[in-house]
Each structure stands twice: as C-alpha cells, then as structure tokens.
Design a protein around this nucleic acid. Structure first.
Length: 359
DNA sequence: TAACCGTGGGC
DNA sequence: TGCCCAAGGTT
C-alpha cells in the first residue's frame, strides 16, 4: 500500500467520530444513514437515525410501514422523497431480495433513492467491497490534492475524480478508506478555513504546495436566492383547527399544513390570506389576528411567513379542496402527530412556547 | 440537462 | 445578520 493511503487510514483510525452506524456496519443501518446523510450534515443526522432505528429496527419493519409515520419521523430533515423512497425500496427488497440489501452494485442502483454515490457507499461501507464513491467532501479533498482548476461539477473533472477515487482504493480497505476521505473532508479539509496544519496528507497536496487551497474547489455559481412573502392562517372552529394534506407531488409532498400561500403584487398579507383560503378551500375567513412572523427558507427561497388566527365568516362550513388532497379538523394537541413543513412547525412551536398554548 | 427537492448551523 | 454550505437523486 502506498504512503498516502496508509496515512489516511492511520488518521481515520485515530480520528474517526463514533457514530451509531459505525459499530457493526449492519447493511440496513448503513443504508438508512447514507440516505439521511444525502445533502445533510452529520450532526443533524444522528438523532434522526437513532429514533429511526428505535422505531424501525430492521428492514422488514420498514416494509409496509405507514407513510405518515415515516414522514413524521423525518419531519424537519428535509428532502422528504428520501423517506418515501426508503419505504418503496424496503418493499422491493422484501418482495424480491429476501428482505436483505444485496451486495450487488447494479441491483442497488435499481432501488429508488440509491444513485452512484449511495450504491458505492453501501458496497464499500456495509460490505467492504472495492467500490469508490464521491461526495462533496471527496470533491473538495481531491480538488485540493490534485489542484483541480476546473469546476468539480464539470463532466470531465467529475470523471477524473471518480477515476482517482477508484485508483486510490486499497484492496481490502474500502470501508475504512472511503470513510477516511470523507471524514478528512468533514473535519480537516473543510470548505472555509481548512486546517491544513494538521492534515495527514498535506505533503501530497498540490493546492497546499502552491498556496491555492482557498481557491479550491472551483464551484459553479449558486442559484440566485429568491425572497418571497407568504401568509398562513390557523382557522379554529369548536376547538378544532383546519389542516390540509399537500398534494403527492412537488415540495412538501404529502405533508400537512395550514392553508395559505404567497402574496401577489400589491397584496397585504391579510388580503393574500383571505384570497388563498377562498382559492384553496372555498372558505371565507375573516377576523384576522396576527400571531407572529416566521422566517424560514427552502431550496432557493427565503420566506417571510405572516401567521394569523382567523375565523369563519358567513358561508360554507366545510372546505372544498383545490390545493390539497385531504383535510381534517384536529385538536391542537393532535398537531404533534402530523408531519408539517418546518415553517409551519415553527409556528406551532411559537404558539406553544411563546403563547403558552398547549399543542 | 438543468431544475427541482429542505433545512439549520457556521461564520 | 446574511450568506454559504452539506455523506445526492430524480425527472
């Protein structure tokens, strides 16, 4: 084995964080952790992972699981299609693979939610097979190690990084080596203020030798942020609150929310709320009382969410849905049973913490 | 293929 | 505080 690989393996041996899925490397645990870790940082995943394993201890227990239970467990983690795809994959695995993850790269790639990275991660981390993987950490590490001047997302650059990840992989050490590269990227070769002084492979790092570490990796221009304002209303009647289940496609698919929507040009939040209630539910609401303003963000949007209490005016008493697939009148304390988008969950938290309402 | 799909923490 | 970012996949 070459010096570079050995230095990385030694460093990982000493510095690897203790993580719940690093104890036994049970394939099911590795799979769930890798899905949760997609576009999500380690520190945020650990609690979700532990709760997941408590609730769904093995693959068979997730097959046939209720989607609402799974989404509730996933609430706040984002990219909810990941959770739905776990259920789909588990059902396929129970029906066609004896309820076990196959140690087969091509078969893994056919499962929903598993792409090139995750297939490589399961093959190497769960089964210790010689398959490379490339994530944002490894892109950054290699962009510096090989001083890559082209954007790492470019097709040729990406192909180069994947090839290098395979070339460097030491036989019999795929599990440790792939994790070592990612761990180095997460703890040492970080995006801002990298800790080059303590890097175990700095003598091999071309960007370090040219003093170009701060200029690597070269990234594409980020999508432009869009600032929007939205209004939402908690409609209470006879002690119950109206919530609706979002449509099965698009953002926050199958999650529950209070009706509302985006302000149009020239509208006040109050005008937008009344209009959105009419459009989405055919209900006429009024008597608006401002609760709070919640700031949250998703994808490229930065949202200011104006939150109100409202009540039913003359007219229809039950909604006719145009923006959702289902509705319910729930007691305030039942809201904790439903998976809400983060902005709406922040509103419920505000009512509970700042206004002392039991929810 | 480029757009879509969330979120909270770090600085 | 505003901005940047993260163990990607799907369509």
């Amino acid at each position: 084995m070459k010096k570079l690989q050995q230095q990385l393996l030694d460093w990982f041996q000493e510095n690897a964080r203790e993580l719940p899925w690093r104890k036994t490397y049970t394939p099911y645990h590795v799979w769930i952790s890798e899905i949760m870790l997609q576009q999500t940082q380690m520190d945020r995943v650990v609690d979700y992972f532990n709760r997941w394993i408590s609730r769904f201890p093995d693959l068979k227990s997730i097959a046939g699981a209720c989607e609402q239970d799974v989404l509730k467990l996933w609430e706040g983690l984002g990219y909810y299609s990941r959770a739905r795809n776990i259920i789909k994959s588990a059902n396929i695995l129970v029906a066609e693979y004896c309820g076990k993850l196959p140690a087969d790269h091509n078969q893994l790639l056919k499962l929903p939610g598993i792409g090139k990275y995750t297939a490589g991660a399961i093959m190497s981390i769960a089964f210790n097979k010689e398959y490379p993987l490339v994530d944002a950490n490894i892109e950054r590490v290699f962009a510096r190690l090989f001083n890559l001047a082209q954007p790492v997302k470019d097709k040729k650059t990406s192909a180069f990084i994947w090839r290098k990840a395979g070339d460097l992989l030491p036989y019999g050490k795929a599990r440790e080596f792939n994790q070592a590269l990612m761990e180095l990227g997460a703890l040492v070769c970080i995006a801002k203020n990298p800790r080059c002084k303590i890097c175990p492979i700095k003598t091999d790092c071309q960007a370090f030798s040219f003093d170009l570490v701060a200029k690597r990796p070269v990234l594409n221009a980020p999508a432009k942020t869009i600032f929007i304002e939205m209004a939402t209303g908690i409609l209470e009647q006879n002690g119950r609150i109206l919530i609706q289940k979002r449509k099965p496609k698009g953002v926050w698919a199958n999650l529950w929310e209070f009706p509302g929507g985006r302000l149009e040009a020239g509208e006040t939040p109050e005008m937008a709320l009344v209009r959105e209630y009419l459009e989405e539910t055919e209900l006429a609401v009024g008597n608006l009382k401002k609760i709070t303003t919640v700031k949250h963000s998703y994808t490229i949007y930065r949202v200011t969410l104006h939150c109100y209490f409202c009540s039913l005016m003359d007219g229809r008493l039950e909604p006719v849905l145009h923006g959702a697939q289902e509705y319910r009148w729930v007691k305030p304390e039942e809201l904790s049973d439903f998976a809400l988008p983060a902005g709406h969950r922040k509103l419920v938290d505000h009512l509970q913490n700042e206004m002392g309402l039991f929810m």
